[in-house]
């Protein structure tokens, strides 16, 4: 247009600069649409590649010769005993670490004492030490050449290459989950609520039961679920201490490996699929509980 042409270049540049400075309103914490799409696509692709694809592979491999073959493989005596041993180990290890984790988190978050930093580090140890080394430690502790092993054996208690060894190794490896989940939560919550309960006449136990526990229950649940998932899936430490006695000390992850090494792919993946299914059930359980929780008066944990 004529007016445009009449504009001096400097005025044009000025108006352009102005336009650049005055951006249209946008939610300050939001991104523009292309950026959003890109970020979401990236996340989705990554999830597909790292999570869904392997999961899909496991199930498709298990069902390659049909559902019947897979079920038959699971119904095998050794496989069944592996399943029941895995469940047994979880049933023992999880409650144990639940109690220990709550006690440790309680002590660390609510009291001042000497050696607290040391205890905190110690709790992290199973996270930082390779599970294989954890297993070897138990061999050293309870093996034939150790002090404890022969003593226990003379009482008729076999630890190594038996169920107790598998349980102990699992407890060791899953040790930090509950405590790690609870310590920051409880530290954040402080001791105010507990003091309020005590000042109202509650005993220590009542305070824990009616005040502390409800405050941490969601963190606790999360820790327990993680602990459970790891207890069922632990391979390294259990592999070392179990001795791999088929039908006796073989858990599901070990069973998967044994079957795989025997080129029995369908059976291996069938058991693996079952194990994955257990993990999925755990996750669904957690999601369901969270739903119930958010419906149950809308309070966020920690506040």
């Amino acid at each position: 247009m004529a007016v445009d042409a009449a504009m001096k270049p400097s005025a044009l540049a000025l108006s352009a600069a102005k336009e650049e400075r005055v951006r249209p309103f946008r939610d300050p914490t939001s991104e523009s649409l292309p950026v959003k799409i890109l970020l979401i696509a990236l996340a989705a692709a990554f999830l597909a590649l790292v999570l869904f694809l392997p999961l899909y592979a496991v199930f498709s491999e298990a069902l390659r010769k049909g559902l019947d073959a897979a079920l038959l493989a699971i119904a095998d005596h050794d496989a069944l005993s592996a399943v029941s041993l895995t469940l047994l180990v979880a049933v023992i290890a999880v409650p144990f670490n639940l109690v220990f984790g709550v006690a440790a988190a309680w002590a660390i978050a609510k009291f001042e004492f000497k050696g607290k930093a040391f205890l905190t580090t110690l709790i992290d140890l199973p996270f930082s030490v390779s599970p294989v080394i954890a297993g070897l430690v138990y061999i050293l502790l309870f093996g034939a050449g150790s002090f404890l092993g022969p003593v226990l054996e003379s009482w008729g208690a076999q630890v190594l290459f038996a169920v107790p060894g598998v349980v102990l190794a699992t407890i060791f490896v899953t040790f930090p989950f509950v405590a790690r989940e609870l310590i920051p939560l409880m530290q954040h919550q402080g001791t105010g609520d507990e003091e309020a309960a005590l000042s109202l006449g509650a005993s220590g136990w009542q305070t824990f039961w009616y005040v502390t526990l409800p405050n941490i229950k969601w963190g606790l649940l999360y820790g327990v679920l993680l602990c459970n998932a790891r207890a069922m899936g632990e391979f390294g430490a259990v592999s070392v201490v179990s001795g791999r006695l088929r039908g006796e000390t073989v858990t599901m992850p070990l069973q998967v490996e044994i079957l795989y090494n025997e080129y029995n792919y369908v059976a291996a993946f069938a058991v693996a699929a079952l194990l994955a299914l257990l993990a999925l059930v755990t996750l669904v359980l957690k999601a369901l509980l969270e739903r119930v929780y958010s419906r149950d008066h809308a309070l966020t944990p920690g506040h």
Binding site: G192, A196, L198, S199, A202, Y210, P214, N215, L299
Partner: peptide, 19 residues
């Protein structure tokens, strides 16, 4: 102990039981 003194304490940040 605090329980046996039978006091009523109101905390600065209330410390109401949120659940």
């Amino acid at each position: 102990s605090v329980q046996d003194r039978n006091i009523g304490f109101v905390f600065q940040h209330y410390a109401l039981f949120r659940h």
